[in-house]
């Protein structure tokens, strides 16, 4: 649909009682707009059904258009002032430190992985296979009151490798991670195998996305 352009001369010819009715699909050129305003011709948009800002009466007190907002502003201001006065004053307020942990993602995952001591330990034993090695290790773990949750064992020719995942968060285990580590590593050495104990968190951080 082609649009009708209203030019300067159109304004003059269309004006009735100083009003030009601009309907949908009409475009008023800037020059026409300027001419209208200079000659006191009002442009009424939408065939008079759409209110123009020109139609809004001025408030006799403030000289502004539209209903008076003074009372509303007053009310809102009072409410805000009331709310502020309930907050701690300057110096009392503590800016909450930004915690990326609360936002999920990597940080939250790592926080989950972070050790809430004592949590779980991984015991890795390697050495020459001989009777009693597994018994010695499991005995010392159970003496600590810890709970073995998983065991994996392989034997290649004369060598064995054994991995335990141990829960230290049991009612019977009162040891710190360090104490547990020292005790199990020592018992492994006594049984003639190389034992390393480390925190499960490091595995979770490295191998779980």
């Amino acid at each position: 649909m082609s649009k009708k352009i209203i030019t300067e001369s159109d304004v003059e010819s269309m004006a009735q009682d100083g009003v030009v009715e601009v309907l949908r699909g009409m475009i008023v050129t800037p020059l026409a707009r300027e001419h209208a305003s200079r000659n006191g011709i009002r442009l009424v948009y939408g065939g008079g059904t759409v209110p123009s800002s020109e139609d809004i009466p001025r408030d006799p007190d403030s000289g502004l258009k539209g209903p008076s907002n003074t009372a509303l502003i007053q009310e809102v201001t009072e409410e805000v002032v009331r709310a502020i006065s309930e907050l701690p004053g300057p110096g009392e307020a503590v800016i909450p430190s930004y915690s990326p942990l609360a936002e999920g993602g990597t940080a939250a995952a790592l926080d989950g992985a972070r050790a809430e001591e004592p949590a779980r330990a991984v015991v890795v034993a390697t050495g020459l296979n001989k009777p009693g090695v597994a018994a010695a290790l499991t005995t010392s773990i159970s003496e600590c009151g810890a709970d073995i949750q998983d065991i994996s064992q392989t034997i290649i020719s004369d060598f064995f490798s054994m991995i335990f995942v141990v829960n230290l968060e049991t009612e019977t285990c009162q040891l710190t991670f360090k104490a547990f580590k020292d005790r199990v590593e020592e018992s492994g050495r006594d049984a003639g195998s190389e034992v390393v104990v480390f925190h499960e968190a490091i595995l979770r951080a490295m191998h779980r996305v």
Binding site: Q149, I163, V165
Partner: peptide, 17 residues
């Protein structure tokens, strides 16, 4: 197994060796 033996060994190797 909670962790594959390879994963445990890899971590151990990284730290120890």
């Amino acid at each position: 197994m909670l962790y594959k033996p390879e994963e445990v060994k890899e971590t151990l190797r990284m730290i120890e060796g």
